[in-house]
Design a protein around this nucleic acid. Structure first.
Lengths: 354, 354
DNA sequence: TCCGACAGGTTTACCGGTAACCTACCCAAA
DNA sequence: TTTGGGTAGGTTACCGGTAAACCTGTCGGA
């Protein structure tokens, strides 16, 4: 293909109506005329319904094939209110491996069951979620998947008015809008708090990110602090960074925290990426882990297992959450009665760094 | 909200037509009646066009607001062939950090410019890409973003017939279907090959994954081998795994390769994840890196920088590819003339492991 | 002989927007 | 006074499917 033709294809998609062109975008009517039946019959054949003879079915399929018919879901979903196969999915981050795994789990199941995913990313902002919702609801999706349980009042009203089935995932949702599939972040934090105490650590630090905008991370910290508060001698110091929760944030965050509170004996991080950054800082400073300082993360990212000492962390069922959320949503769309609330186990991995 | 009401909301979205219900899903007609104008005027106001007085505009907006109007993109895109704001994006993997970064770059730009993304994942299979294309084209997307340049003949025909603008990304595309934004994988491999020779390594190994289904990885290997072939004394041994390119695959892949060819002095991996697995194996076996064995990866994942020795790898412009692909596509959709071919630099990071 | 049931269709009326075209009115210039 | 052009709308016809109602011929049984 010459460069000129490429340009034409890209930049002038709306060409004039030539017979050539008409053949290129056939619809039910065209197939109907070619086969000698009505377009309603064609519709029934292509949707695999009943009410036509084998012979007619065969001829319609052949005509559709030879004309290169591509169904028009836009028209179908518009005509039949229930026919949308779009599911909207909003995640707080796209670059985090965790959400990649969740998206993969959702995608595998949804695509197998005949649905397409429109994705959005709200960067942990409820306002961004609401404006994304406004856009995606205008496509009249069959269902929605949202991360977490905090939404703006406007978003909640939109969801109620639209009557769209919703699954909230990756959290322990107390006031659900619909279905929920997740686990308790407070429990993750509390488990880690008790584990840390069990290892004899009492002077704890916590390093967060995103300025506390990540509600689930905040829940983990609250659980962690609550567990430590069971021991009268335990203390928790906090350093809340504004940065994204990456390796570098952990690296400089621990420096800030330990400069302010040099006597800490364990640090719990927002996630594994940051914990690994913290480990790198300890290694650079010659601190022994866990003897001088314990390090704990969250998320059980694969990279955590490559370290000389396996990271103390919490393994979360990300793939299972995606899969089960998709299954529950589709079950609801089909009029079945899926479990309203699925809680999956998050497992503490003792590791060797606390 | 009681559990009963939740169930009703989820499982019986199609309730009877009550006046209450009609108010819940207003359309242009309803707003028009409430304002005392025609629905065409409402359409003009809501799309921010011209042809109405300030007073009328204000009253229509107020009515739309108070009725909780949610636009119907389905109807809009159906009525006006050019009005779709959907962009289809297909990536080979969703769990890889690299594609997460690309998706994030695409999403930021596309959502800012008013587009929504339908995503798909083809697991490096061209056949899966074709069947995804069939589904997504039935939504009449405004444009498409595909990874790589290999497509089935059926996919190419679909794309040609549909006249949908396409951007092929993350590769150096020789026979483009439309726009291209990427970099040369062959050059990544060749650069690494020359670098390896420059460090005095001549007995090279390569460990691939996905059974060679990842065409870009194969191009990197071809470039690597071609560069080494410039040195008459250099050899390259290959171990092609069927597994996904993860840490564990690198770990056991290097064991297989070195069992077969114990005298290698450098190993080039499918990607950084696998290279890190290879490093872990060397560490476990007491091999000195890079003195006994050099290790090279590809992708410059963040985890590669946490190692005691920084990994020799290639940094790829994933975020920039996403951003520029989105910008080019939108420019084309707006009738502008974006560059047909954008090549971005991939930079070799010498690191300390070769 | 007549009836009902069923297979195998057809016809009609929408879904909710948008493009294209038409109209009334007002004001300024010729 | 006439003409012309801009402003602020309204009217009509569609986009490509689907649901629902409606035909029509055939066949088996009462």
């Amino acid at each position: 293909m010459s460069t000129e033709k490429v340009i034409d294809n890209i930049l002038a998609p709306a060409t004039v109506e030539t017979p050539q062109n008409k053949r290129a975008k056939p619809n039910l009517e065209v197939i109907a005329k070619a086969t000698g039946v009505s377009k309603m019959t064609v519709s029934r054949v292509l949707r695999g319904g009943a009410g036509f003879s084998d012979e007619t079915g065969r001829r319609v399929m052949e005509a559709a094939e030879s004309l290169g018919y591509v169904p028009n879901q836009l028209a179908a979903a518009f005509a039949a209110d229930q026919a949308s196969t779009i599911v909207g999915v909003c995640v707080p981050e796209l670059t985090s491996p965790l959400f990649g795994i969740v998206l993969d789990g959702l995608h595998r199941t949804l695509s197998r069951l005949g649905y397409q995913m429109i994705i959005g990313c709200n960067n942990h902002s409820d306002d961004d979620e609401e404006s994304w919702l406004r856009k995606v609801l205008s496509w009249r999706p069959a269902g929605l998947v949202l991360c977490g349980q905090t939404h703006t009042p406007g978003a909640v009203e939109l969801l109620r008015n639209s009557q769209t089935p919703v699954v909230e995932i990756l959290d322990d949702i107390t006031a659900p809008l619909g279905l929920t599939v997740g686990f308790s972040h407070a429990a993750c934090g509390a488990d880690m708090g008790r584990f840390v105490l069990g290892r004899g650590k009492r002077r704890a630090g916590y390093i967060g990110a995103l300025g506390g905008a990540d509600a689930q991370a905040v829940a983990r910290f609250d659980g962690f602090r609550a567990a430590l508060s069971q021991d009268p001698g335990a203390t928790v110091e906090v350093e809340m960074l504004q940065d994204v929760p990456c390796f570098y944030a952990g690296f400089y965050g621990i420096e800030i925290l330990l400069t302010r509170h040099p006597d800490l004996d364990v640090v719990y991080f927002h996630n594994d990426e940051m914990a690994i950054g913290g480990l790198a800082w300890c290694s650079a400073r010659g601190l022994r882990v866990p003897e001088d300082l314990g390090i704990a993360g969250w998320g059980a990212m694969e990279a955590a297992s490559i370290l000389p000492r396996q990271l103390t962390t919490t393994q979360v069922p990300a793939a299972a959450v995606g899969k089960q959320a998709a299954e529950a949503l589709v079950a609801a769309l089909r009029g079945e009665r899926p479990p309203l609330r699925v809680q999956l186990p998050a497992r503490l991995i003792p590791g060797e760094t606390v």
